[in-house]
Design a protein around this nucleic acid. Sequence first.
DNA 1: AGCCAGGACTGAG
DNA 2: CTCAGTCATGGC
Length: 222
Amino acid sequence: MRIVCEENLNKKLLDLYHQLRSEHGTLKWWPADTPFEVALGAILTQATAWRNVVKAIDNLKAADTFTPEQIHAISQDELEQLLHPSGYFRMKAKKVRAFVKHIVQRPMQEMFKQDVPELREELLSIYGVGPETADSIILYAAEKPSFVVDTYTYRLLSRLGWVEGNFHYARLRALFMDNLPHDVNLFNEYHALIVRHGARVCQKTPECQACGLQSVCDYFSN
DNA sequence: AGCCAGGACTGAG
DNA sequence: CTCAGTCATGGC
């Protein structure tokens, strides 16, 4: 992946942000009540529709198995059954177990005392936590400025013609973080808007030649 | 009836 | 390091 146009990326990224906001409003993510629920959702939503994640989380709540300690106490088989509707349930159970094992020994609030680079490294060291999951936890649970990138982000920028080539997480994240103020609320809303845009608006229809959001397409087509 | 969803890990070249 | 294969359910 390479960045096509380097100049004025700062302004372009802010313009795109405001276009998305005018289209979708203010979202104030993440759909969860606690930092642990954010992390759980971040792992469960890997390559999975959010509606299926909700089913799994509801199962955990209904079984009164929703604290790190409670999840840590049950078996792999039991966890697999509860996570079943979220897909990849064997892998997800393994990942969730690795995560709770880590934070039972070292609570999230302790981890969150670190700065972003150290916190990110620690999260990445946990089995099942890759770059997007780590950044989601940092931004939406720890509330520290680490930009979250996903396939929707790549599609949008790719269709706008700002990047070319294969998806590259680190370069895409750097594109945002090197050209925007490190503001938690800005990063929060920006990623949320991109996902909302991608999931609800940007369909792969023939008429969607660019990104699918008409105002964005119109605005950046000149 | 396919196609694909807010990825990460593994092994091969 | 780059990349295909693997994991799996449920909604449209």
